[in-house]
Amino acid sequence: MSFESWGDFVAMGGYAAYVFGAYGLTVAVGVGLVAQVWVRKRRWEQDLRVQLRAQEKQP
């Protein structure tokens, strides 16, 4: 651990805004891109489910 206390860590030697901003943005984009595909997949599956059910009803 290269920090004395949590307060030191949060202050980041005075560069907190830059350091946490950079990490936060990167993590947000990294998670966001995965989440985006996941949402797209869920929507698509729901549409397909509706289609398949409709097909079953009128054979």
Partner: peptide
């Protein structure tokens, strides 16, 4: 991220700002 933010030693010139390097 945890290693870079918490455990890696501070740079003698740039202090903690160099931790941005890890992203």
């Amino acid at each position: 991220i945890v290693w870079g933010l918490l455990y890696a030693p501070a740079d003698y010139q740039q202090g903690h700002s160099y931790r941005i390097m890890y992203v």
